[in-house]
């Protein structure tokens, strides 16, 4: 069983801070690294995989620092988000050359096993240049698995996969985790992380916003105050009626636009219709004003 450890890790590019004082440990099982695009997920993963030097702090796999220690790749499999794969090789040749470069004892058998694992047998004889995005993703996973690594790091592994391939990949990662491997994958999609991992690390703007059990973090995300924008035939009348509802925390009429704040998402959506009816106004629109993942994440950061 291997462990990834980050201690007070920062990384900056000139004046831009990409990762800011992040510390965590990732052990056996599946951990999701969740965050909006541009949050610093790839920078973190690349530091863990030894492709980037931390500007400050320490990144290790067990006892070995990852930066400038090629030997650590005997234990790591890394699947980059970037699509570039040698286009002149067939899928099988790509996985086979990975096996040989890793110094695997029986590269042919290891290649077949890895191709089988990602369900790519039929297409494995074709040049990668002609692969779909999902197939490229799978051949990259096969190449990263071919030496049977203890640690698997995947950057947005489900990008470009169709639902069937996605389920297959999730099953594969689950079975590998069950064997005691340490698996860390990044995603900007909440549902992917929810379905696959018990443990989650949330990064926002280069900082670790939350970490731990997914259900607890999900609760934090859903229990936060929500803001809705409302349009009706008479916003002032509707605002007065809504203010009388217990689930409404605040209403604001500003520049002719009505916004409503609530602590309970579900209750509010059920209460607005009857309130409009009681006030005798026509409800034209009810729209959550802050439902982007970014706003959820920024709420977590500012909490």
């Amino acid at each position: 069983m291997s462990q990834i450890t980050l201690r007070e890790v920062s990384r900056w590019y000139g004046n831009v801070v990409a990762v800011n004082d992040v510390s965590f440990e990732v052990g056996a099982g599946i951990t999701g690294l969740l965050g909006p695009n541009g949050a610093g997920k790839t920078t973190l993963l690349h530091m863990m995989a030894g492709f980037l030097a931390p500007s400050a702090g320490d990144v290790r796999i067990d006892d070995s620092p990852t930066w400038r220690h090629p030997e650590v790749y005997r234990r790591i499999g890394f699947v980059p988000e970037r699509e570039a794969v040698h286009p002149f090789l067939t899928g099988r040749q790509f996985v086979h050359s990975s096996a040989r470069l890793q110094g695997v004892k029986d590269p042919v058998a290891a290649t077949e096993r890895a191709i089988e694992m990602v369900d790519l047998r039929e297409a494995s004889g074709r040049a990668i240049g002609g692969y779909s995005k999902g197939m490229r993703q799978r051949v990259k996973v096969a190449a990263s698995l071919v030496h049977d690594p203890e640690v698997l790091i995947l950057d947005e592994p489900f990008n470009g996969m169709d639902p069937r391939q996605r389920l297959h990949m999730m099953d594969l990662l689950r079975s590998m985790a069950a064997e005691g491997r340490t698996i860390l994958f990044s995603s900007h999609i909440l549902e992917e992380v929810e379905r696959l991992s018990d443990r989650v690390l949330v990064v926002v703007a280069g900082r670790l916003a939350a970490s731990g059990d997914f259900r607890r973090i999900r609760r934090l995300m859903t229990d936060r105050p929500h803001t809705f924008s409302v349009r009706s035939s008479d916003d002032r009348l509707l605002a007065r009626e809504l203010l009388a509802s217990p689930e409404v925390q605040a209403v604001e009429l500003h520049d002719g636009a009505l916004t409503v704040r609530t602590g309970d998402y579900g209750q509010l959506t059920r209460a607005v219709g009857p309130a409009a009816q009681r006030a005798g106004v026509s409800l034209l629109e009810l729209r959550p004003a802050d439902e982007s993942l970014e706003s959820v994440f920024s709420y977590l950061v500012h909490r």
Binding site: F78, P80, V85
Partner: peptide
């Protein structure tokens, strides 16, 4: 340039 160096660098081969 095309990023495929990653697959070579991710191997336990002395540089």
């Amino acid at each position: 340039d095309d990023g495929t160096i990653l697959y070579l660098l991710a191997k336990p081969i002395p540089r």
